[in-house]
Each structure stands twice: as structure tokens, then as C-alpha cells.
Nucleic acid binder design. Structure first.
Length: 579
DNA sequence: GCTGTCTGCCCC
DNA sequence: ATTCTGC
DNA sequence: GCAGAATGGGCAGACAGC
């Protein structure tokens, strides 16, 4: 199959909004492929050249691709940038530029493009960046314009086809069965091995029985089960009736595997996205080695924790443990513990099909309560009354935790699945507990993808520093905005556009908006937390960092009842931060 | 050897 | 992470 | 409700350029 044929199918998918129709188009395309092509096409559709647990990335994003386009089409980088701002998609820019050149290009086979992309991904070390840029430029020169569009998008990981893993899985079911009845089975196989290309190839080669060899194996990560959100204790009980309630800790999701190889105990840790974390947390590895079980797979939250005081360490510090160098030194400063909440495999036995209550019992027997080596079982309470849930929620929130997790006591462990078997109730979902600030818009940024048509995708929000008598930035906001609000905001901001940075406005150069505006429009911004910021200028004093909002979103656009003199001040932010 | 820029199916 | 949108 | 695609702050690491 030629790559441009694939590109034409992508183009058709992009124009389709009905998922049933997408599934139909996709499954017909898969039928046209040889098994090996299926494997490669499925990797490409997910923006990769290898399965996701293999750490081979392009290390090439918008800046590098812009350089490549400028080389390929002999343009100044600033011109490419201008086109990007205008079109909101570097794939479209590549197609546009390629179209202006001669049209007699041969294109290449899907397999050839795949290999070329793999080579680009594999460059590393000195001069690797220029090689990537040059190789992509040469590739684009030999491809038809429509292929250029999608090659660029594959590298950027933004195919924007409306196709994700779930739709691909449905299509695979259609390929072998003519309907989507195999979805559950394929889904489980995929989330157990985390290799969509392999699952696709096996299915095409051997049919459904090809999946039977895919089983849980310690040492190979499985996709973690995910949760839905709810807004109240009542909603949780109404869904689950009975629930196992646990505190929600603010750290990193972590899957721990232990097994025996050549008589030696082996341990591996994986992140939520199946990245290897093993070497970063030696104290957790040691703890697992000391446990009695020979082989197991468990799930938990890795969080900075001081055993002596029972104090949890904030996320911003915990995340510093995710590193390659100076591990022991950082481990001394920021000790972590793995707070486990699930057990999926124990001594040769797959436990994922057992009810959660039973898995939890086995977990509690595996890790003794007084175990002191960086491995603990999270506290659990099984309840059936709203007020019990509420009481636990209040307790956890008072203790400074994020909120709670509620889990169905009877549910199986479903890898990769996000449904209401697991529900999170976060502190910030309760309006009374969220941090809300009144800020002023200082400028805006062009949008990408589906926001291109509005000409805006985010805006910069400032607060007032009384001491310095200036506006300082505290957050960029690009979520919580409905489509008609985007239009309204853009219209309003364009009326007060300014062509230079005003005095009494303090913005870091990295955050400089595409369009600056006169500070006049007051907005309400909601956030989960106030954090110290290396970038935002709010409250910044010399070398001391400023403040920013964690997970900022628009609560209310345009508060005409408030003027700029009444917005939140730095002094107020500092009070909120200390609280 | 230092510093700034860019990247990450990053983490959240 | 949160949020919005089309189905 | 699902699935997908927009968007945030901020961390460490890799390179490139001086």
C-alpha cells in the first residue's frame, strides 16, 4: 500500500463525525492491509513507530518541525511560524507548502515511510537535531502533499482524525467478526500487552484465537484501570450502593511487578503511561524484594511521605524524584512510599477477575500492617451511606489530601478501562473548597486544531500587585470555555488590542501572548491549588519564584460588576497560599 | 563548562 | 490534570 | 455517557551554541 492511499483514508476519516461511519472506514482500510502493514499502520495511527511501553520518541515537536519545513520549502522560520499561527496545524502548513511545489511526486510505500520515520526517531546525541530536521525535510520532498500533512501530524502526535484506541479496537472487531461483539475481548488483550500493533497483526493472522496467548506476565506492564469523576457523596452512593472508600493521594500512579528470574527476585515499577520508573525509587524496590510473595503485580500511588511524622510531601516535590541522576541524594531529601490499593497477580495466579473486595483482602495479607519499607496499603472503609462517605471526605480534606476514591467492592480489575467502578471525588469539585480568583485578561494566544477557527485558544490572566503597582501573571487559561464564549471573548479582546507591552504589566517572555490587550476585562478563574511558579510573575521577588494556579479554568467570563481595581491582589494570593 | 531552548503517547 | 462537543 | 480533542503548571534531561 502506498502511503498516499493511507493519507486519503485519513482525510476521509477527518471529514467524518459519525463514529459508526469512522469504524466502517477504518475496518475497510485494515482489510486492505497485509498483516505486517496492519501492525505498522496501527502504530502510525497512534503517532508512534513502536508500542507505547518502548521508550522511543521522535523528540521532535513543533519547533523542530517548523525548522524542517523551513529547510524543505526554502522559507524563513518566521514565515513558517506565521503560517502555523494562521492555520493552527503544521500538517496543514506542510500540505499547503508542498502543494505549491511541482505535483509529480512519486510518494512511497507505507512500509518505507514507516522505516524512514523510525530512523528519524532513533537519532540521538551530537547533531541529532539537525539530522532529524534534514531527514524529515528529505522525506517531505518525496511525498505527495496529502502525505506530507499526515507525516507531520504523526510526528507531532496530533493526527486529529477523531480516531483513538477505542475506535481502532471496534474496527478490529469488525474486521474479524463483522460487528463489534469482540470489543471486550480485544480490549482486554490490548490492555494486557499494551501493543496495539501486535494485537492487530495477531487478529488478522490468526483470528480471535490469536489473542489467547496474551496473558498477564509479571515484568510486562498492563494499562492501569482509570476512574470517572463525581461531584458529591450522594452521587457516589446512588451509583455504587456499597463502596470501598480510600483517600486520594497526590503523587504518581505506579504499578509494581515482582517475579523470579534465574533464582533471583526481580522488581519493576511502571508509571501510568507504562514508562519504567524502577531505578528512580530504590527504596520501593528494596521494600518489594523484602516482601514474602515470589511474584505479584500491584497498583498504587507513589507519594513523598515522611514516616516519622506521617507527613505527605506536595506533588511539586514528589515529582522531582522522577529523574535519571542524583537519585540517592534526592531520595534522602524526599523519601517516598508506595501506597498500594490493588493486587492483580499473585504467585502465578491472575487475580484480575476476582471481585475487588477479595483482591484487597489478599493485598492486605501480602503487605503486613507494620511493614516499614516504603510499601503500605492505603486505608479502606466499606460503606453504604452517603453521610459515611461525606464524613470520610471531610476527614481526608482536613488532613490536606486531594479527596477520595470510591470503588465498587464487586468489580473486576479492568485494565485500561475508565468507568464508574472507580469514582473520584476531589476537593476542588466542591465549589466551597476550590480556590477562585478574580483576574484581568492581559492578552491571548492563537488556537490550534479545532480552535483555529476562533483565532484564540487561551488567554493570559493577571492579578494586581499593590506594592509595585503593576499587573502580574498568575495563569494561562484555555479550558472551561464554550465555543460561543470563545467568540465573545475574542471579539471583546480585539476591541482593546494594544501593539506593545504596556507599563505596569509584568509578563515573562516565555509567556508573551500573541496579542496583548489593555487590562480591562475581569474574569473569574477556578483552580485546585496555588503553587510556587518558576514562570509566572505574580508575587515574584528577585530570585524568589512567583505564584501560579494549578489546573486553572474559566469559571465566568466578564464580570461587569467588578472593575480592574477590585481584582484579586498578590497579598490575597499569599494569604490563600499559606492557608 | 555554562546557559537557554525544547521536549515529553512526561507527570499531574 | 479539566473541560467541551458530537454522537 | 463515551470518546476524542482542546487546553493548563511544572519537572528533569538532552542538545545546541557560545
Amino acid at each position: 500500500m502506498k502511503f498516499y492511499q493511507l493519507a486519503q483514508i485519513f482525510s476521509k476519516l477527518e471529514k467524518t463525525s459519525s463514529r459508526l461511519e469512522m469504524t466502517d472506514i477504518l475496518h475497510k482500510m485494515i482489510k486492505l492491509c497485509t498483516p505486517l502493514e496492519v501492525e505498522k499502520v496501527l502504530y502510525l495511527v497512534t503517532g508512534r513507530v513502536v508500542p507505547k511501553y518502548v521508550s522511543l520518541e521522535f523528540n521532535m515537536a513543533e519547533k523542530m518541525v517548523m525548522k524542517s519545513l523551513s529547510l524543505c520549502f526554502s522559507l524563513e522560520e518566521s514565515d513558517v511560524k506565521k503560517l502555523y499561527k494562521e492555520k493552527g496545524d503544521l500538517g496543514i502548513v506542510a500540505e499547503y507548502l508542498s502543494l505549491k511545489e511541482s505535483s509529480g511526486k512519486k510518494d512511497m510505500l507505507v512500509n518505507e515511510v514507516f522505516e524512514r520515520l523510525k530512523i528519524i526517531a532513533q537519532y540521538r546525541g551530537k547533531e541529532s537535531q539537525s539530522k532529524k530536521i534534514e531527514d524529515l525535510s528529505n522525506l517531505l520532498k518525496t511525498l505527495k502533499s496529502i502525505s506530507c500533512k499526515y507525516v507531520v501530524r504523526i510526528i507531532l502526535g496530533t493526527l486529529r482524525l477523531g480516531i483513538g484506541e477505542k475506535t481502532i479496537i471496534d474496527s478490529l472487531s469488525w474486521v474479524v467478526k463483522g460487528d463489534k461483539s469482540l470489543r471486550k475481548k480485544i480490549e482486554r488483550a490490548y490492555y494486557l500487552c499494551s501493543d496495539l500493533g501486535y494485537v492487530g497483526r495477531k487478529l488478522v493472522e490468526d483470528g480471535v484465537k490469536g489473542l489467547d496467548t496474551i496473558v498477564l506476565i509479571p515484568g510486562r506492564p498492563i494499562s492501569p484501570e482509570l476512574s470517572q469523576r463525581e461531584k458529591s457523596a450522594e452521587a457516589i452512593i446512588s451509583r455504587l450502593k456499597r463502596a470501598i472508600i480510600q483517600p486520594k493521594l497526590d503523587g504518581l500512579r505506579c504499578q509494581l511487578h515482582k517475579w523470579v528470574e534465574k533464582g533471583k527476585p526481580m522488581v519493576a515499577l511502571f508509571s501510568r503511561n507504562l514508562e519504567v520508573l524502577t531505578h528512580m525509587f530504590p527504596e520501593v524496590v528494596k521494600g518489594a524484594e523484602m516482601l514474602e510473595g515470589d511474584s505479584f503485580i500491584l497498583d498504587g500511588e507513589l507519594v513523598g511521605y515522611r514516616e516519622e511524622t506521617g507527613e505527605f510531601i506536595p506533588f511539586q516535590q514528589t515529582i522531582q524524584r522522577r529523574r535519571k541522576y542524583d537519585i540517592e541524594k534526592k531520595a534522602g531529601e524526599i523519601p517516598v512510599s508506595l501506597f498500594c490499593f490493588d493486587l492483580m497477580y499473585l504467585n502465578g495466579e491472575d487475580l484480575t477477575l476476582l471481585p475487588y473486595r477479595e483482591r484487597l483482602n489478599k493485598l492486605e495479607r501480602l503487605i503486613p500492617q507494620n511493614f516499614e519499607l516504603s510499601l503500605k496499603v492505603v486505608e479502606s472503609n466499606e460503606v453504604s451511606e452517603t453521610k459515611e462517605v461525606q464524613k470520610l471526605f471531610d476527614t481526608y480534606v482536613s488532613a490536606g489530601l486531594e479527596g477520595l476514591m470510591a470503588k465498587s467492592p464487586t468489580s473486576q480489575y479492568q485494565p485500561g478501562v475508565r468507568n464508574y467502578d472507580w469514582i473520584k471525588l476531589r476537593r476542588s469539585y466542591e465549589v466551597r473548597l476550590a480556590d477562585t480568583i478574580d483576574g484581568v485578561i492581559l492578552g491571548y494566544y492563537k488556537g490550534r486544531g479545532k480552535l483555529t477557527k476562533f483565532g484564540i485558544g487561551a488567554f493570559l490572566v493577571g492579578i494586581y500587585n499593590e506594592e509595585k503597582d503593576e499587573f502580574q501573571t498568575i495563569a494561562k487559561v484555555g479550558t472551561g470555555v464554550k465555543e460561543d464564549e470563545w467568540e465573545e471573548i475574542k471579539t471583546n479582546l480585539d476591541k482593546i488590542k494594544v501593539d506593545h507591552l504596556l507599563p505596569r504589566v509584568n509578563i515573562a517572555k516565555e509567556l508573551m501572548p500573541d496579542v496583548l490587550v489593555y487590562p480591562q476585562i475581569v474574569v473569574v478563574i477556578r483552580a485546585d491549588e496555588i503553587t510556587r511558579s518558576p514562570l509566572h510573575t505574580a508575587g515574584k521577588e528577585g530570585d524568589e519564584s512567583g505564584f501560579a494556579l494549578r489546573f486553572p479554568r474559566l469559571e465566568k467570563f466578564n464580570r461587569p460588576d467588578k472593575t480592574v481595581d477590585e481584582i484579586t491582589t498578590v497579598k490575597e494570593i499569599i494569604e490563600m497560599y499559606q492557608h
